[in-house]
Every structure is written in C-alpha cells, then in structure tokens.
Design a binder for these strands. Structure first.
Lengths: 340, 340
DNA sequence: TTGTAAGCGTTATCAT
DNA sequence: ATGATAACGCTTACAA
C-alpha cells in the first residue's frame, strides 16, 4: 500500500478511469482524437473527483501560460477602466487570463512590472503608449514576448499598436473649431512629460492651427493632470487673460468638466462667449447644464481589439484585426461660433 | 557534445558559476544562507545571462503561485477601480501578483471566473460582497483556497470580510438627516437584487427611520443602477410627488450626481427646499455648483487591507489587520434643515 | 555551507 | 486510438 491518500491529479483520474495519463490529457485538450467511450468515462471520473488541472504544470510542459500581462498608467481613469473591462472580457472568451499592473505614469516602474510579468510567465505584454524604458523593447525581444502598445496609432505603428490616432483626433477637433470661425485658442493640455499620447494630441492642435497661420499664445496655454479642480483653475487663468480666447480645448475628460464648471461659476456664457471642447466622452459630459462637445474614444473597443490582436499573433493566425480605433467628434452645446 | 545551445536556465547559471543548481536556487530565494562569495558570483552570472526564473516551474515545485485572483462586479465604477489600484499596489509590494476578472454582477459568472482562477493556480480568491453562488464556498474549501469578501463588514463576518459596514454607514447618514429635522424621506436606492451591499444600505436607512416611527413612502422609494441619467429620472419622479420628501438619500455616487443635476434643472433649491445626500465620494461631488454631502468610503484602503489580510493568512502570520474600513460622513452644502 | 537527486503535475514523443 | 515515458525548470529533503 504505497499511496494511501492519493491527491486528485491526472494520474489518479487515469488510474480510476483505467486509462493512461496521456489519454486523459488528450481527452481534456483534444477530445476529438479520443474515442467517445473513453472520453465519457474520463469525463465522469473528472467530474466525480472534482479534478481541476494544474495550470503551472501545464505551463511548464507546454511553455505557454495562457496569461497576458497588461501595464496601465493608472486604473482609475474612465478610459483605461473601460479598456481593461473590454480586454478582460475578450481575453476570457479567447481562453486567456489577464494579469494587471499599474505604472503610475512612471516608465521605470512600468519596466519593473514588465519584468515581473515575464517571470510570471505571461505569453505577451500589453502597454499604454509608445514611450517606454529604453531597455524594455530589448528585454521583450530577448525573452520572446510579443507586445502591443495601446491607445496610440499612427500609420507607421501599424501592427504594433491599437488605439485612436491621437494626433488626427485633435487635428480634426481643432479644424472643426477653426471652421466655426475661431481664431484665438486656449489649451488646457494634459502634461505631456510622461505621456506621449497627450503630446500627440497637443501636436495635432498645433498642426491644425499652423495650417491657418495660427498658434496658441503662451498665456492661453496651460498644462494640468486630470482633476476637475485643475481644470477649473486653469480655465480661470485662461479666461482672465486679455484678450481671452474664444475656444478652449482640454486634454482629457476631467480637465474639461472642470473648465465647464468654472465657466458656470464665473458666469461666462458657453458657447456664446467661449466654446469649450474636450477629449474622451464620459457620462457627466452630456449631463452637465451645458453638455460638452468632445472626442469619443471607444476605449472598450481598444481593449477588445488588443485582446484579439495579441491572441491572434500568439496563435500564429493571419492578422485581420483593425488596429486603428476611430475617434469621433461628438458635437454638443458647449461649442459654437465665436462671439461677433 | 550533447547540448549545443543551452537555453538560459537555472542549470546553465549553475554550470557557469561553477556551483550546483541548489545553490543557485538558494542564492535567489534565501540569499542569507549562501556564502557571500558564491552569492556574488551567482548574481553576476544571472545578470550577465539575463536569466529570468520560470514562475511556472517554481509554482509546480513549491505548490504556490504567488498569484491572488480577484473578481469584481465591474471595473469601471470609481470605488472598485480605486480598490483595485490599492490592491494591486499592495500585492506587488508583498511580492504577489493580481489576477483580475469581472462578473458583471452575475453570481454564476463569478463562480465560473473563480473556477478559472483556481485552475490558474491562484493562492487565494478575493470577492465583492457576501452573496455568491451556492457552490462557491464548498468549491473553495475543497480546493483549499482561502478567500475574502470585500466592501462588506459586520461584526459577524469578522475575519472573512474587509470593507465598510454598509448598514451602519447609512444608518448614521439617516440619523444625521433625522437630527436635522427631516421626517419625509425619499430614496433612490441601487438595485439590491444582485447586490447585498445595496441591500444592507437600504436596511440601514429603514432601521434608522423605524427607530423614530418613520418609514419611506412607496411613492418616495425608487430603484436604479448607477447612471447619472437614472439618478435624474428617479429624482424627478420623487420630486413630483405630493407631498414631496424633504430629504433624498441616494444609493451610489452617480445616482446622487444625477439627482443633484436634476434638482438644478427643475429649479428646486438644494438644500433650502430639499436635501440630497449620497454614498461614496467622487471628485465631481465636491465640484458641482452645490457640493454634495456624502459618505466617504476609503476604497483604496479596502484594497490595501484586503491584500495585507489575505497575504498574512497565506503566510500563516498572526492576523492584526483591521477588517472594518470606516465610512465617514462628509457634510457639504447639499444637506440642511428641512424647509419650515 | 554546498551538492545530489527526487519530485512537482502536466504534455508530447514515440511506439504499439 | 492508446500507452509508456521522457521532458518541462525549479525547489528541497537528505547527504556530505
């Protein structure tokens, strides 16, 4: 009597079902090549014993874990949260699992998280933006982990990134305002220091303006992070300038909401006296007393496409996924022609 | 010449460093029991080869993965997002990794996610609330996975849950309004069908009222989910009743914001004509034209404590963590005495 | 303090 | 279609 209390495992299942371990393994992974009879017998034993296969053992044998690691700058911003939800859901359906980490907008921390992920045996890595630690790419190549950059896209990055074209989105939004007749622009940008997407958006604004020989005056240009309070303060600062811009473009949803709320407090008519437009569309933007014109980013879709794309690559499938996720301008009451 | 291109692994490191695999393993896991000389020699080889230990192999050998699985109803609500961020950060510091899934408020889906997690080899499971699939607990016990319920707490659940005491929080908030003189209450509750925490909060309101011989009139009682739009609609419905309540208690942050915005639209003075109070404190609540009185839940702390608590249990440490995360009433301009 | 070698629970390569 | 058995890469008694 060598083994009194066998713990449930592939072996035990095989023994009770009267087959080899290999057959049980096949019955689980490639049922179609196992005879119906054995398949059922095995299934019933598995059920009866409540056996749950051990993923680490499988990962060791197959050298694949079925886990995808994603590092986001933060998890609390609406756009990332939505993307994570889409990502998670889609990965689950594809038979993968999501390992999540947070870099706090710090590329060193991001790199550390990625290292941990590789140790954990993730099959692939998902990142936000294209600005990373300089050793990151080499590290991933050396460790043979495919990766994808989220929330960025430009024709040159095709195949390595999935998201909206930040530059194009703000270029268009700015064009829309120019076409309305605006010539003096204020900008409440998101700090671009550790955020290449914010930088691209800013550049989109500048390029659109430059085409018309326009530029943002320094005293109309401010930089914030992503709180409503900052949006208020920066808007107040801009609105206090003389001359005041006729349109203010904000870098993210919260800065925008802050700007709009401050315009209310200051009694500045929007859009009669000033237009305010934003980036990213969250519910509050359409529920405020003056609903806000903004760029709708399909964040959840970014997550879903990223999942499909990376899994497709892992499984060596032909890549048909679209990489660019369109960003649509939603026109609401906060924008209109400049005052005469 | 048996092995031409050895791939980097423990073996290879050991060979090059001129020590046994056991020593390398020790140098990685328990450096203090390895002589300084070898430790350094090994470290340099590890560095040079860029070796990254294989977590699956380790998990197989130690029968622990260092991974914690958490299933949340959704990832997009602010409170959960904050908790996840805290959880993730704290787990990282403790040397663990977070595996994340989403149940969409569906206990069957939750159960499926938990099964997947167990297959993935998580060491422990984190859940939200205490209402789960009836087989869930048995499953976790059978598979020897400790678990913790988040965002709930009552003395009876001590040791198995970490979060605020939902009942107590709303009991107190209601008492606060009663003490201000309110006697007619409206409620915009969050649907409690698949949400035991919402149920507990509702009960807290009822119990506080009952102590004063009060109750919510059916036409002052509504149920929503968690959008601003619903908050608006339900507030409008309640405010249209005759008599109208003098105070409205809302079940979550977005319903509250909706109620406040609708009061603005309807031109109802807050708090002169009606008081509006909410649950959970998000930035917009203190930035609206009328800042909102609400219950602040320390969501990030829920995440952190949960991490400490579950890791403590896994590592067999004496448990000193507090399980109840206080919920504080933040009084702002939206609440005051009832109209005379 | 260090080395030897037996697992850990699967999958995958051969045969049969 | 099924079975025997050698990996997979690391940890950990047990020995030295």
């Amino acid at each position: 009597m060598p083994n009194e209390a066998q713990k449930v495992g592939l072996r035990q299942v095989a023994k009770i079902a009267g087959v080899s371990t290999a057959t049980v393994s096949r019955a689980m992974n490639t049922p179609e090549i196992v005879s119906a009879e054995l398949r059922e017998r095995i299934a019933s034993v598995v059920e009866r014993l409540g056996w749950v296969p051990h993923a680490a053992a499988r990962a060791l044998a197959t050298r694949r874990s079925g886990v995808i690691g994603a590092v986001f700058p933060t998890l609390t911003h609406g756009d990332f949260a939505r993307a994570i939800e889409g990502l998670q859901d889609e990965l689950t359906h594809l038979g993968y699992t999501l390992l999540l980490a947070c870099s706090n907008y710090d590329i060193d921390q991001e790199f550390r998280q990625v290292r941990k992920f590789v140790e954990r045996g993730v099959d692939a890595i998902l990142l936000v933006g294209e600005l990373h630690h300089h050793e990151l790419k080499g590290f991933l190549v050396q460790n043979e982990r495919p990766s994808l950059n989220l929330f960025v896209y430009s024709p040159e990055t095709h195949g390595t990134s999935v998201g909206p074209d930040n530059h194009k989105a703000l270029y268009r939004l700015t064009r829309y305002l120019i076409d309305l007749g605006h010539r003096r622009f204020g900008v409440i940008a998101q700090d671009a220091a550790a955020n290449d997407r914010a930088g691209a958006r800013l550049q989109g604004i500048r390029d659109a303006l430059a085409e018309h020989g326009l530029a943002v005056r320094p005293d109309h240009s401010t930089m914030g992070q992503w709180t409503i309070r900052e949006g208020r303060e920066l808007f107040r600062r801009i609105a206090g300038q003389e001359p005041r811009p006729t349109a203010v473009i904000c870098g993210n949803a919260y800065l925008t909401v802050g700007a709009l709320l401050e315009s209310l407090s200051l009694g500045i008519g929007v859009p009669e006296e000033m237009s305010i437009v934003g980036y990213d569309d969250i519910e509050i933007m359409r529920e405020l007393p003056t609903p806000i014109t903004t760029v709708r980013v399909l964040s959840e879709m970014v997550g879903r496409r990223a999942a499909q794309c990376i899994v497709g690559r892992l499984e060596g499938r032909e890549e048909t996924t679209e990489f660019e996720c369109g960003a649509e301008i939603i026109v609401r009451a906060s924008s209109g022609p400049p005052p005469v």
